[in-house]
Design a binder for these strands. Sequence first.
DNA 1: AGGGGCATGTAAAGAGTTACATGATTCT
DNA 2: AGAATCATGTAACTCTTTACATGCCCCT
Lengths: 184, 184
Amino acid sequence: MRFVSTTLGHALLGLLVRQPLTGYDLAARMRHPIGYFWTARHSQIYPELQRLASDGLVVSEVIDGPGPRPTRRYRITASGRTALRAWVTSPIDLEPSRSEFLLRVYCLWLVDPAAGSRLVNDYRAKHAARLSEYEGEHANCLPEPASGTPGFASYATLRAGISYERHVVGYCDWLLEELSAPSD
Amino acid sequence: MRFVSTTLGHALLGLLVRQPLTGYDLAARMRHPIGYFWTARHSQIYPELQRLASDGLVVSEVIDGPGPRPTRRYRITASGRTALRAWVTSPIDLEPSRSEFLLRVYCLWLVDPAAGSRLVNDYRAKHAARLSEYEGEHANCLPEPASGTPGFASYATLRAGISYERHVVGYCDWLLEELSAPSD
DNA sequence: AGGGGCATGTAAAGAGTTACATGATTCT
DNA sequence: AGAATCATGTAACTCTTTACATGCCCCT
């Protein structure tokens, strides 16, 4: 059995196991919906597809399409499916989280409360907008898909996004209150 | 005014504006407490310190210490402090979030519910452990530091960690229930 | 005729991890 | 005597972003 070495490789297999797609289609799905928890540009995707193909985890066929180069539709192979399934339940470590926003919060004491509140408010607005975007999508996918289906897995990641954005908005609200009422 | 180009540079300035530190001390603080929202190894930190020094944002003095090379204590300069303050409230974009766990959730439909539950449970346990770690620290830093102090800024990032871990644990609980009660 | 979307690639640079390398002091 | 901690650096590699490059098809 062949192992996929990169997370991106698994992301692409996770899309291809649902349906065959071109590199262009994969790049579009890496923006939406996968982009909400993993991102990649087309310049990273095309070389990765070549690696997956040379490892026998995907195969491609040339189809009609525009442009100077042949258009390829990729399909997952049986061994790609096996590798993906093995990865899904393999041991997972705590992942390092990176937030430039929290790094700024750590330095908030350097600036006056009004400027600090502006920063937090802007950040809150962006996340509140994303939250309503997610909530709109959520309303669109009722009734809840049955567990064990691809639809349910997509729904589960959307629920994660909603829960995360609520946490961010709630946290910003707490922080804004603290900044506006310094001596409580 | 000089601009710091990397997020890591701002992270280091954010530590040095609180107190002078050696590269070794900075590396320790990049594991804890900064590591909960930004990480860096010493191999990334030492070159970055040299860049900050050559831009005049920090200065170093050689102090007594072990090892084959001189031990340096770094201190932020006035222009470093100015650059850091300007960065804190500069416009911030939505940051791409990366979660291999959610990528796996997107593929959960491929594996049987028992194996899926094991994955989610393991992930939940790791985050629940981190949550109680944070809650212990929270109990340690009462009463709440006054807004506008470095202590409050540290406290505010701890609150963010607690809120985040609660979101993760709550989400895992929801998902585990869905996986165990497939036809509700 | 021009702009936007479809479609695929490579090149160069920056960010981050892992491994290599040295050597003093302190604790067990 | 050996392990852990203090302390600083470089090298090699991987991952990610930004920029360069081409050219068809469809709509207005």
